[in-house]
Simulated assay, not measured.
Amino acid sequence: MRRLVARQIATTGERSRQIGKPAVGKTRRNSSSEDEGFEYVETHRAGSRWPDGACRCRHSRLCRDVGICVRQFDGVYTEEQADRGMGFFGTDCATCHSNTARGSSAAPGLIGYALDSKYADQPLYTYFDYMRSNMPPGNAGWFTDQEYADIVAYLLELHGAPAGDAELEGTEEALSAIMIVPTPEG
């Protein structure tokens, strides 16, 4: 599904560093004084669409300041990526965290209440960085950043977040643009 998202640009007219995935499609500048310094980019990436440039969720500074709100439930990974992550998780993580990632006597759960209570209102990068810096125990950094991102994609799938069209990138910039929000009720 195509959407418009706001992307902040420098006051000189040149674009500032891009947030999230590369834009796809047309760009238009907004001429209202309230939105000076923003452009709206038509994209396939999920996110909120607010003509006034303000995100309504208020989960992050990025949302408030730039008007982009991408959450873990907005299709931020692909099914293929989650399948790759399932392989890595099965061989290196499930022994401690269980096949369902809900935890065991050896290690805590990584999804559900555990994810919601520990990481809600934080960028996905925080979750990723903890994993990359500490897991597997005694061998942190065993995987490449992209392989850790694949594991995160699999955990998001187990958490109930739907897949989308674009792969989750294993970069600080991309992961910092995605907010972890509490699981919606229902």
Rank of each mutant, 00 (worst) to 15 (best):
M1Q: 08
R2N: 04
R3W: 06
V5T: 05
V5K: 00
A6M: 03
G13M: 08
E14P: 00
E14D: 09
I19R: 08
G20M: 04
G20Y: 01
A23Q: 04
A23Y: 04
G25L: 05
N30G: 01
N30V: 01
S31L: 02
S31V: 00
G37V: 01
F38D: 00
Y40K: 00
E42L: 07
T43A: 09
H44E: 12
R49P: 01
W50L: 01
P51M: 04
D52L: 03
R56N: 06
R56H: 06
C57D: 13
R58F: 11
H59M: 06
R61N: 13
D65V: 07
D65T: 07
G67S: 07
V70Y: 05
V70N: 03
F73E: 14
V76A: 11
Y77T: 03
T78A: 11
E79M: 08
D83M: 09
R84Q: 15
M86C: 15
F88W: 15
F89N: 07
F89W: 15
G90H: 12
D92F: 13
C93N: 04
C93L: 06
A94R: 10
S98N: 15
N99H: 13
T100G: 08
R102Y: 15
S105K: 08
S105V: 05
A106Q: 11
A107C: 09
G109R: 11
G109L: 11
G109Y: 08
G112E: 10
G112W: 09
A114C: 08
S117I: 04
Q122Y: 02
L124M: 13
Y125L: 12
Y130H: 14
M131G: 10
S133L: 05
M135F: 03
P137L: 06
P137Q: 08
F143N: 06
E147G: 05
E147R: 12
A149K: 08
I151W: 02
L155P: 02
L156T: 06
L156A: 06
E157D: 14
E157P: 00
G160N: 14
P162V: 10
P162Y: 10
G164A: 08
G164N: 07
D165E: 12
E167K: 12
E167C: 08
L168V: 06
T171L: 12
T171K: 11
A174R: 12
A174L: 10
S176E: 14
A177Y: 10
A177S: 15
I180H: 05
V181H: 03
P182L: 12
T183H: 15
